[in-house]
Amino acid sequence: MSVAERPLLQVRDLAKTFDVSPPLLNRVLQGQPQAFVQAIDNVGFDIPRGTTFSLVGESGSGKSTVARVVVGLYRPTRGSVTFDGTDLASIRGRRQMAPLRRRWAMIFQDPYASLNPRWRVRTIIAEPIRVHGLAAGAAAIRRRVGELLELVGLSAADGEKFPHEFSGGQRQRISIARALASEPEFLVCDEPTSALDVSVQAQILNLMKRLQRELGLTYLFISHDLAVVYHISDYVGVMYLGRLVEWAPAHALFTRPQHPYTRMLLEAIPDLEMSGRARTPVGGEVPSPIQPPDGCHFHPRCPFADGDRCQREVPATLDIAGGGQVRCHAVAERRMPPADTHTRGG
């Protein structure tokens, strides 16, 4: 496979377990057992260069954990993350990591918490430039910071201000400018618009799409909002209790959802067209990730569970015609009714 065709990011069989045991003293004195949360379990996907792959799911589905493992904030318990052909597990030490580390950056949900309130904006944005030695001399750094601020729709003079002088949307622009300061190819965006009002969200999403076009960026986009994901993604993965239950090209996932959980999520979106479409209420809640159900995690809530195999056996990964993969016994056994098209007006 040539370099151009090779996906920028390849994630294979990724797993991350957190130890959530009670303190040692309680375990010894009260005989409490150790406890673990399987935050992510056997997750695999590729992100082709210049595209956006989104992960959606409810709280506790493990989507943010995937993002953190991918950027190296957590070490995976099992599996591999390959960035542009380099397996991140093979890297030893900071020195080897540094040139790679410059090539990705992360944007967080809360623009209030992710900017140092005591630093001027120009210092915040200049930090990655200094750390990676990308410009020499104060004048060059200042010029670069001004360029970055203008790139995200602010003015160079805004660099003199402090974060509290900006609105939420402007702060998120500053976060994006800082993320772009190291000239990365790959951005991991963890709910970048969830804390913003809709009109501001539209501005940030448009900005992110423009930057992707102009700079050829690749995004891993984490969100719980399916409409936002529809808007920005080339590929969408759906997570449930740590497992990637389905992924597919965005249009296919929204028009022909395979997994019952994907269908349920699409059903749950409030209907702005007010078509009077009857919604099937979905019962139940996400179970505790400490003791997930056996077999397919979704079987207690699934209207298509068969009461036997779904309860015992973890579904294998199955290719979907036209791209994508799904993990569901009902799909494999062709027990699922055809998906009615969920895209309205499309």
Binding site: V198, S199, Q201, A202, L205, D225, L226, A227, V228, Y230, H231, F254, L266, I269, L272, E273, H342, T343, R344, G345, G346
Partner: peptide
């Protein structure tokens, strides 16, 4: 405000 809301199928 209505136009700024991302809509599935749009």
């Amino acid at each position: 405000l209505m136009d700024a809301i991302p809509k599935i199928g749009g």
